[in-house]
Amino acid sequence: MELLLAITIGLLYASGVYMVLRRSMVKLIIGIILIGNGVNFLIFLLGRITKGSTPIISENSDTFLEAYADPVPQALILTAIVISFGLQAFAIVLIKRVYKVLNTDDIDRLSHTEDYDIL
């Protein structure tokens, strides 16, 4: 299972970097989304995949006696998903507005906006 996740992380990173290097703003955002999902999988993998009980210590003992699931990576991933969803929604609206005003999503053409009548 860990090998499959490692291969998936590598594919997400590779495809994300490939998409970021394209000239289209839409492909740039898709690449950032793929890299973000790769980071989430990486955090999940680093937290170790174990089947265990909840991390609650009973009143009779001072330490964990059996395997438990670590909640910290899961909480970090959940927070990252919420933040990235807000960022993606903002970026999509921004790209839509830029395309409506300038009729292009080519990054090279957007750097020379003096040819466009923006107002």
Rank of each mutant, 00 (worst) to 15 (best):
H112N: 15
S84N: 10
I77H: 06
V72I: 15
E2F: 07
A14N: 02
H112K: 11
L21I: 14
S111L: 12
T113N: 05
N37V: 10
Q88V: 15
M25V: 11
V82L: 15
A69F: 12
Y13H: 03
G52H: 03
L45T: 05
E114L: 02
V82G: 08
T104E: 07
L21Q: 12
Y13S: 07
M19D: 06
L102M: 14
L4E: 04
I92C: 11
I30R: 07
I56Q: 02
F44M: 11
G47A: 03
V39A: 12
L46K: 07
I35A: 06
K51R: 02
V39I: 15
L3F: 12
E59K: 04
Y68I: 09
D62I: 09
N103F: 06
A89C: 05
G36C: 07
V93G: 04
V98F: 11
F90L: 13
L4G: 01
A14H: 00
E114A: 08
A14T: 10
A91C: 13
I7A: 09
E66L: 09
I9Q: 03
I57M: 01
I95R: 01
L28W: 08
M1E: 02
Y116Q: 01
V93D: 03
P55W: 04
T79D: 08
A6G: 08
S15K: 07
T63R: 14
Y18N: 02
T54V: 02
Q88N: 14
L34H: 10
V82H: 00
A69I: 15
I7F: 11
K51T: 04
L42F: 14
A6L: 12
P55E: 01
D117V: 13
I118Q: 05
D105R: 06
Y18K: 05
T79Y: 12
E2L: 05
R109P: 01
A91H: 05
I118A: 00
I83T: 14
N37T: 10
T54A: 07
A69E: 10
G38H: 00
S58K: 03
V26A: 14
A80N: 13
N40P: 00
R97V: 10
G10T: 05
K27M: 12
H112V: 13
D106W: 02
I57Y: 03
H112P: 01
R48P: 00
V98I: 15
A75R: 06
I35G: 01
I83R: 08
I107P: 00
K96R: 15
R109Y: 04
K96F: 14
R22M: 09
T104M: 09
S61Y: 03
Y68W: 05
K96A: 15
L3E: 06
L34I: 05
S111C: 09
D108Q: 06
V20C: 07
L28N: 08
S53K: 09
T113V: 10
V20I: 15
R22N: 09
P73T: 04
Y13M: 15
L34F: 15
L76V: 13
I43M: 08
Y116G: 02
G52W: 03
S53N: 12
